[in-house]
């Protein structure tokens, strides 16, 4: 193992990728669900769009290191791609952009806060990333204004609920299983506990 503590170690990378592959499977299952509710209209589908940002949130909350959110989104989207996503190459690019913008949010907090609020903001970042792509790809600006507003509101709410609040509660439940302790760098509390 390299002596430096900078950058991600193999353990971090591998764990992030393996978690993300689990989400990749979910992302893949999410595809058919997404386009089967889409014809219902009124953008009900956008409420569940937020699932595609969850890998970044969960990986960030679990591993708590710079870069894992981006890596997680890339890994999850490549997993989805390798399993034969209906959207093909598109998912890779979306994954990169979404992960990047979630990462920016986490960086803005200097990787020091790990709660539902931060991941909700991260989810909003990822949503903006997906919208940037949709703007180029899907001409979403050409939807009727009421329809576009509905589209945006539904996507933001879905992202916050799924990749913010739900992701945080998922990680809380995982902490109870004891696996989270294996992953995290020793925190200040741990050192304080030694001094006591």
């Amino acid at each position: 193992m390299p002596a430096t503590t900078k950058g991600l170690k193999l353990v971090d990378i591998l764990t992030t990728i393996v978690i993300s592959v689990v989400f990749g499977i979910i992302y893949k299952i999410w595809g058919p669900l997404y386009y089967s509710v889409k014809p219902l209209g009124f953008h009900i589908d956008q409420l569940i769009y937020g699932m595609w940002f969850i890998a970044a949130s969960v990986a960030y909350l679990l591993i708590r290191k710079p870069g894992v959110a981006l890596l997680a989104e890339i890994a999850a989207s490549s997993g989805e791609f390798i399993m034969g996503s209906e959207w093909g190459l598109e998912v890779l690019i979306y994954g990169v952009v979404q992960g990047l913008l979630a990462e920016v949010v986490f960086a803005a907090f200097r990787y020091k806060r790990f709660d539902a609020l931060v991941v909700s903001l991260g989810a909003i970042g990822a949503t903006i990333g997906s919208l940037v792509m949709d703007f180029y790809k899907g001409y979403i600006e050409a939807l009727a204004p009421w329809n576009l507003a509905l589209f945006l509101i539904a996507r933001f709410i879905g992202a916050i609920v799924i990749s913010g609040i739900f992701a945080a509660s998922l990680v809380k439940a995982l902490e109870k299983t004891g696996v989270a302790q294996m992953l995290r760098p020793a925190s200040k509390d741990d050192y304080d506990a030694l001094d006591r």
Binding site: P2, L10, T15, L62, L174, V179, M182
Partner: peptide, 25 residues
């Protein structure tokens, strides 16, 4: 998600130890 993720994390840790021992890093 919880059994799948926790199991994956444990597995990833074990694989990572093995890979580091074999200098994959």
């Amino acid at each position: 998600a919880i059994p799948l993720l926790s199991q994956s994390i444990r597995r990833a840790q074990r694989i990572a130890v093995a890979m580091e021992a074999k200098r994959f890093s």
